[in-house]
Simulated assay, not measured.
Amino acid sequence: MESTNPETGAIIITFVFIFLVVVIITLFLVFIKRKNNLLTEKQQAKREFENAIAETQIEIREQTLRNISWELHDNIGQLLTLAKIQLHQLTDSKEDISGVSETISKSLTELRALSKLINPDALKNIMLPEALQLEVERFNRLNFIEATLTIHGDEEIIDDKAEIILFRILQEFFSNTIKHAKASKLDVTLTYTPEKLTIVAKDNGKGFDKSQDKLNKGIGLLNMKSRGKLIGAEIELDSALEKGTELTIIHYL
C-alpha cells in the first residue's frame, strides 16, 4: 500500500483551510448583510410609521377645520345675511341702524376671509404668499398685531400638500405670537431661489429661554418639526427672553 505524498497532503490541507476560511467569510458577510437589511427595514418602518401618524394628525386637523369652515359659511354666514336684509326692511324705525348694518357688513367680510383661510380645499386654490397676505391683513384689520409680509425673489411653484403644511406651521407660530408672546409686531419674510424657499417669521414678544426644553416643547416646536419632516423642510426656532422669537423654515424645491 502506497503512502500519501507529504506534499500532496500539505496541498490538501491548504485547500481545506482556504475553503473553510472562504465559507466563514461568506457566512459572516451574509450575516452582516442580513443585519443591515433588518436595521434598514426597521428604520424605514419607523419613518413610515411617524409619517403615517403625522399625516393622520394633519388630516384630522384639516377635517376639523373644514367642518368649521362649512359651519361658518353655510350657517352663521346665512344668518348674518338675513339679519342685514331684515335691518334694511326696518324703514319705519326712527333709530339709526347704519352703524349696525356696517358692522354686519364687516362681519360678513371677516367671516368670508376666515372661511377661506381655514378651509384646506380653498387653500389649495391659492398660493402660499396670498394665504399669508390674507392672514396679515386680517391681523392688521382686527388690530391683533402690527404685521407685515415681505417677499424676495420670483415666486416658485410648490406642491399643494407642502404649501398647506407650511401654512399650518406658520399659523401655529402666529397663534403663539398673538396669544402668548405679548408681541406688538410680527414680520414675515419669504425668500425664493430656484433651489429653496426660506421663510422667516419674527415677533418682538417676550421670548423664552431656549435652554428650558419644557418651554421649547410648549410652543409646539416638536409638532412643527414633525410636520416639516413630512416635506423635508428644516425648522429652527431661535429666541431669547425679552428679545422676541424667530422661526426659520427652509423648504427645498
Rank of each mutant, 00 (worst) to 15 (best):
T4Y: 08
N5R: 09
T14P: 00
V23G: 08
K33S: 11
T40R: 11
E41W: 00
E48R: 08
E48L: 14
A54S: 15
E55P: 00
R61I: 10
E62S: 14
Q63C: 01
Q63S: 15
L65I: 04
S69L: 09
E71R: 12
H73N: 15
D74I: 01
I76R: 07
Q78A: 12
Q78G: 05
L79T: 11
L80G: 03
K84H: 14
H88K: 11
D96K: 10
I97L: 15
S98V: 08
T109M: 09
E110P: 00
L114A: 08
D121P: 02
A122E: 15
K124I: 05
E130H: 01
A131Q: 01
L132I: 15
L132D: 02
L134S: 12
R138M: 11
N140M: 07
R141V: 06
R141D: 15
L142G: 00
N143T: 09
I145K: 12
L149I: 13
E156W: 02
E156K: 15
D160H: 11
A162D: 07
I169F: 01
F173T: 09
I178M: 05
H180G: 02
H180Q: 08
A181T: 01
K185Q: 13
D187F: 03
T189D: 02
K196R: 04
D203G: 04
K206Y: 02
K217N: 08
G218F: 11
G218M: 09
G218R: 08
R227G: 05
G228R: 01
K229H: 09
L230V: 13
L230N: 10
I235D: 05
D238Y: 09
A240K: 08
L241N: 10
T245W: 04
L247G: 03
I250F: 01
